[in-house]
């Protein structure tokens, strides 16, 4: 499937600020089920953005604006060819040691309730079964509700509240998987919906766990399915903080308003010649 992505992030300030710095993880890597046909990430003012690969293999750009400005605008324009691999991620860059994906993080530290939920899936026939069990239980226990949680909400808090967004579902899934000794990670990306799936967020997040015989396998607990060809995988990390599309700081006192527009479209199949 061909998926085109237009993602525009605009920060506006009521009066000029003097300095902005942002780390941007908005560049997907190729793997067996994902080919990048076109990808452009730029700052609307033309500021060059140097980049590096982080610990997880994410292409990370740094945007610095060191002069008075009242707008920061980041534009993504991409076209990606995807294939359904039943969630299995093969051929992605894997620079980070697998056992280190067992680390607890502040956002994914399991409390008693998460541990109990996880323990309820121990009896599954195999690890794939365990993961599906976790996915279904988390989806049942955390209702989808926008705006009720925020980027710093922990997995434990989301489960206690009983509602959240895809990020919260992913964190709860990761917390439970790690509790059961399964290496797990957070994935940020895009979802080209319109295929009848229950939840729709163009900017999306899900999780992957490492299963010895299969490698990394994606699970989208918000939709209770494994990612298919409608998913574009962009960045990974131990939790949201490391895979966040934007992490930024600014100098200057001014009210900020954020405007995000994401258009993710399934392109019509190309005509065969």
């Amino acid at each position: 499937m061909r998926i085109s992505i237009h993602h525009r992030t605009v920060y506006r300030y009521e009066r000029p600020i003097v300095y902005t710095i942002q780390s941007l993880k908005q560049t997907p890597q190729e793997y067996a089920a994902q080919t990048i046909l076109r990808w452009r990430l730029r700052s609307a003012d033309g500021t060059p953005m140097p980049s590096f690969l982080d610990s997880f293999g994410n292409r990370t750009h740094t945007l610095v604006i060191n002069k008075p400005h009242d707008v920061v605008e980041i534009l993504v324009d991409g076209l990606v060819e995807t294939r359904d691999s039943a969630g299995v991620v093969r051929g992605a860059p894997e620079p980070f040691p697998i056992a280190a994906y067992l680390r607890e993080t502040a956002l994914t530290e399991p409390d008693g309730a998460l541990k109990e939920l996880a323990e309820g899936c121990r009896g599954a026939a195999d690890l794939v079964g365990t993961a599906h069990c976790l996915m279904d239980k988390i989806r049942a226990r955390i209702d989808y509700r926008v705006g009720a949680t925020h980027v710093e909400t922990t997995a434990a808090a989301a489960l206690a509240a009983g509602y959240g967004v895809c990020q919260d579902h992913a964190h709860a899934f990761i917390a439970c998987a790690r509790h059961l000794g399964l290496p797990a990670r957070y994935v940020s990306g895009y979802l080209a919906a319109g295929d009848g799936s229950e939840v729709y967020e163009a900017s999306h997040a899900w999780a992957e766990i490492f299963i010895p015989d299969l490698g990394w396998v994606g699970f989208d607990p918000a939709n209770a399915i494994c990612p298919n060809q409608t998913y574009v995988r962009v960045a990974t990390g131990l939790d949201y903080r490391e895979a966040a599309p934007v992490r930024g700081l600014r100098k200057g006192l001014a009210e900020e308003s954020l405007d995000v527009a994401v258009r993710v479209i399934q392109e019509a199949e190309q005509q065969q010649a």
């Binding site: 690969l53 620079p95 056992a99 067992l102």
Partner: peptide, 18 residues
């Protein structure tokens, strides 16, 4: 032991590969 390092709060994931 792997766990002593990889689960250690003094091991910084951000430094892997630097």
């Amino acid at each position: 032991p792997e766990a002593l390092i990889l689960k250690n709060s003094s091991y910084l994931p951000e430094m892997q590969g630097v």
